[in-house]
Structures are given as C-alpha cells and as structure tokens.
Amino acid sequence: MPTTDDRPGLIEARPVRHPGRWVALAVIIVLVAMLISSFITNDRWGFSTAAEIMNQTPVLEGLWKGTIVGTIGAMLIGVVGGVIVAILRLSHNPVLRGVSFVYTWFFRGIPRLVLLAMIGSGIGFLYANLDFGIPFGKQLASLMGLSSDFTFFTLDVNQFSSSLLAGIIGLGLSEAAYMAEIARAGILSVDKGQNEAAAALGMNRGQAMRRIVLPQAMRVIVPPTGNETIAMVKDTSLLSAIPIITELFYQTRAIGTRTLQIMPSFVAVTAWYLLVGSVLMVGQYFLEKRFGRGFGTGAPNKRFARPAGAGGA
C-alpha cells in the first residue's frame, strides 16, 4: 500500500523468475507419462499378478520371519554390540582396545554373503558339536582317569547353524562392526566439558558414559543407524545363503520361477522392500525428534522460551 509519507513503506517486489524449474517440470512430466503408458500397455509388467504374489502365504511368511524379524534381531545385536565394541575401543585398557580393533577389522573385512555361507555350512563341518567346558577337558579327564570330560553344555551345530537365529546372529555380528564406528563417532562428538562436568560431580567413568555421554551421542548415532537399518532390511535377502528359505526374496523368486511370472515376482518383492523401508523412515523421524530434545529450536516446551533480549552465550 503506498503511503503519503516519503518514508519507504511495505515492500512489494517481484520474485526472481525460475525458468529452469518449468523446463525441468516439463521434461519430468513427459518421462513419467512414458513410464505410465508402458505400465498400462506392456502386459509383461503384470501388476495384478504381482499383487497376488505379494499376498501368497510363503511370501508373507518370508517377509515376516526373514525380513522383519531378521532385521529387528540383527539390528538389536548390531546396535548393542556396536556400542559395546565402541566403548571398548575408547577404553583405557589397551587389551580391550586391541580386542575391539581386531573385531572390527575381521567383521568389516568379510562380505556378509561369505560370512553367512560360512556359518551355514562351514562351521557345522568344522565343529559338528560345540562343547562348552574346560579347555583340553577331554585330555585332562583321561589323564586324571575321570569319566567326566569337563563339558557343561553341548550345542548341535549342524542343526543350529541352518536356523534363522544363526543367520540373525551372523548379520548382527557383522553389523556390530559398522555400528561400532558410528557409535564411536557419536561418543567422540560429545563436548569434552560434559565429561568434565560429570567427573566434577563425582560420577565415575561408567556413570558419565551411561547417563551423560551416550544419551547425547544418540543424537549423532540415530540418523546413520536408520540408514543401517534400511540397509539391513535389504541384506536380510542374504539369509538365503545360509540357506534359510523363509526369506522374502527367495520365496518370491521361487514363485516367479515356478509360475513363469519372473517380472511380476520382481515387482512384488520390490514393492515389499519399498514398503518396509518407508515405514522405517517414518520411525526414524520420530527417533531423531526424541533424541534431539534439548538441542536447537525444536525444543519441546515452548513455555520456557528464552526471554526477549537475553542472549545466551
């Protein structure tokens, strides 16, 4: 509104034009139209068949056991193990530091596919039964003429190693090596003053880590962990190397091969992976909000907003 005063009034400036945006939009519309036309006119996509395949019982079972349970289990082991390995890595004890380094070196160095194949067939071949007892227990017992061989617990490896649990442990151990690096970065990102404040209050190193440092490190740890989780959803397809057949991709492809509906089966499995990934992205958003409390402008309680004019240092 123009004012009679000669002092400048409200600004009514024209925005900068963005012709590039319109060109990009036009190009994308054409490409999307081409894609949609191919969806409609090319029967080989077989979307209705894909939807049917998605709802087959073996596929759903594979989705539940292999993908969802597998992801949750492997990530639980991965996150807990990773934090432990990271804390060992930052320990004052040189032996523990070394253990942590070797762990990360080993599990980060071998492909998950190889690791799982090895767990599935290799370990059972090497150790048909795993005995938990005193080292050289059998030899000791025969030396002492005892009937006991100092074995407390025996595990049938061949039976165990082809189970879903073995696959989850394999993926989890591998994941822990990656999570350790993420957790270490998170722990190191916390200001040194936080540790000093905790120490000055008389907290020991464990308390300071658990109560003060880790909760703040979570802010840095959560976003890449979300990434790792989504990657893990996809890596559960490697469980078929064990071999575990209650697994999403294995089941879907089996149906596709049997019914000669190869492409629809790929569409079906893609749709499932995208769906699970989307749900995880929503979950990640809420987790980031939770662990970001007390930081930045997203502060939860607006009633205590900083008084006007009082600048914080």
Binding site: Q194, A200, G202, R293, G294
Partner: peptide
C-alpha cells in the same frame, strides 16, 4: 571430587 563443587566458564550443563 564428590565434596568439591565446580562451576565452569562454559557452564557445561547437561543439554538433554
């Protein structure tokens, strides 16, 4: 350290 209180230049409050 329990019986010695300390106040820092940069406050070092626990932000979470």
């Amino acid at each position: 350290r329990r019986d010695i209180g300390m106040v820092f230049q940069r406050f070092n409050l626990f932000p979470h």
